[in-house]
Amino acid sequence: MNITVYISGHGFGHLAQMAPVMKHLREQQPDCRFLVRCALDRHEIGARLGFDVELEQSPVDVGVVQKNAIEEDREASIIGIRTWLDSVDDQIKREIDLLASFRTDLVISDISPLAFPAARALGVPGVGLATLDWFTIYAHWLAADDAVLEKLTHAYSQCDLLLTPPMAMDMPVFPVRRQIPLIAAYPSGKTCPPEKKRSKTALVIFGGSNQPAFDVQALAAMDDWQFLMPLAPTDAPDNVTSVSFGRDLKAVDLMPFVDVVVCKPGYGILAECWATATPIAWVERPDFPEYPMLKGWLQNGFPSCGMNRSDFSRSLWLPALEGALACRRQFPQISADGAQVAATEILACLNG
């Protein structure tokens, strides 16, 4: 069985959703071969999957232009999506040729609009897996009759089935939608605890976008806290420890050993916090249309506390850190493994 998987390169959240599903597909169908269409780095994809795939490494969507992990560039994003969609018909033709060459039996997308028209043209199932899509994002920024939305509607309406985990936006442009349980990565259980230098530990992680600027030296004032962060500067205070993520160490592997995660609201990191019951100190992201929905989850369902971007940039994090620790809310129960459910649903589409 040959499965082609489209993964948006907009941050790491789409890969975080898709990787566990691909693992379960491989378990349920050991003879399957994967062709992955994604612009992300091969090493990042390999670290998430833990097995080798064929990779066609080029963009499959535009997503949103990020100034940094918590600030979007709306004007540049709109220019980018218009330019990209100008050649969408030619791009779909290339995808059809690629899928035919691979002898694709099934297409899965999170959430490239190229995938579904190409699958439909070849008469193979096209399944979506997502908590957001680019029609729903850009519908917040554009007039209802904008050509961008018309083209995205045409592409997404050819999806045979959209699977949506929790923390998903409403995506009415897809004709058939089905809710599934949470999809998340879990700790490997092979990680040694980091050296404990303070009474409390926070993991600072901002995913696949540029880390927003903050005053790293000011973290020294929170002397009870140890901060673990990727690529910490060499002149960071003593209570800051640099960590390096890859195939053998992922952020979720450290979560059982920390008290709080400092992050932006995004599906991948929030799902991993939920899976490991790790409190969250989160930074507002008011420009992104997904944010109000995620903020609702954070304020109503998760042990968490937020901070504004000004306090974050000045490293005035203590109220959010202590607030997350003191929060009495508990994560909802996880009813089942959403990745396993998704894999079963996807294979059922193939079997008719």
Rank of each mutant, 00 (worst) to 15 (best):
D170T: 15
L163W: 14
M167P: 10
N239G: 04
A115V: 04
T164V: 09
G189M: 06
L132Q: 13
V107K: 09
D145F: 07
D223P: 00
A130M: 02
Q226S: 08
D133F: 03
M169E: 15
G123M: 07
K190C: 00
A221F: 03
M167S: 09
P166S: 12
P166Y: 11
E150K: 15
I108G: 01
L231S: 15
G208C: 10
F214T: 04
A218L: 05
C159H: 12
M171P: 04
M171E: 09
P166F: 03
D146R: 07
S157E: 15
K151P: 00
S112C: 12
L162V: 10
G208W: 10
T136R: 07
S188W: 09
A213E: 15
S112H: 00
I108V: 14
A218E: 11
A236L: 10
P212D: 07
Q217H: 15
V107L: 06
M229K: 08
S199G: 07
L132M: 13
I180M: 04
F135N: 14
T234G: 10
K151V: 01
T131I: 06
K196I: 06
T153Y: 13
L122P: 05
A143D: 15
G189P: 05
D223H: 15
I111L: 14
P193R: 10
A143R: 11
G128T: 08
P113H: 01
A184G: 00
P193M: 06
P237I: 05
I111G: 15
T136V: 03
T153W: 02
T136N: 08
S112Q: 02
H154I: 05
L152I: 05
T131A: 12
A236D: 13
R178Y: 06
A202W: 13
L152D: 00
P237E: 13
I137P: 00
P230D: 10
T191F: 04
R120P: 00
Q217P: 01
L203Y: 05
L203F: 11
D223W: 02
L163Q: 07
G126Y: 11
K151D: 08
F135P: 01
W225T: 04
N210C: 03
S199I: 07
I137M: 01
D170F: 05
G208A: 04
A185F: 01
T136Y: 01
R177I: 05
V204K: 06
A185M: 12
T153K: 13
W141R: 03
P175V: 09
F116Q: 12
A236N: 11
S188H: 01
T191A: 13
A155P: 03
L161Y: 09
I108D: 08
S112E: 00
E195H: 08
